[in-house]
């Protein structure tokens, strides 16, 4: 897997956001926010080819979580990122 570097992360009033490419004149722009830990994973993995195990390792290295919890969090993060086309 890789981070989709075509989707740029920008800062709005201190929040990290990614704008989704909407079509035509929609009433509201669709925006996805990345919280602090999601952003840490994003930055750590940007430009690299990675697997689920790499995400788990970043979490267990940086947070006081056991492997099982980290794996669950990593899967949830990946599912979210894939759904929004941020991980390919």
């Amino acid at each position: 897997m890789i981070i989709n570097d075509k989707m740029k992360v920008r800062t709005v009033v201190g929040e990290n956001i990614v704008m989704m490419q909407g079509e035509g004149h929609t009433d509201m722009t669709r925006v996805v926010a990345l919280n602090t830990s999601a952003m840490e994973l994003y930055n750590a993995l940007l430009g690299k080819e990675f697997e689920l195990a790499d995400v788990v390792k970043i979490l267990t290295d940086n947070y006081d979580v056991d492997e099982e919890v980290a794996k669950r969090d990593a899967e949830a993060w990946l599912a979210d990122m894939k759904k929004n086309n941020l991980v390919l």
Partner: peptide, 26 residues
């Protein structure tokens, strides 16, 4: 984030099509 999403579509549409313009717009 809702406020951002509400204002952005009312700004000049061409600006959102170019990366540099979009940086300035954001």
């Amino acid at each position: 984030l809702e406020a951002f999403a509400a204002l952005q579509p009312s700004c000049p549409p061409s600006m959102a099509k170019d990366e540099h313009c979009l940086d300035l717009l954001v």
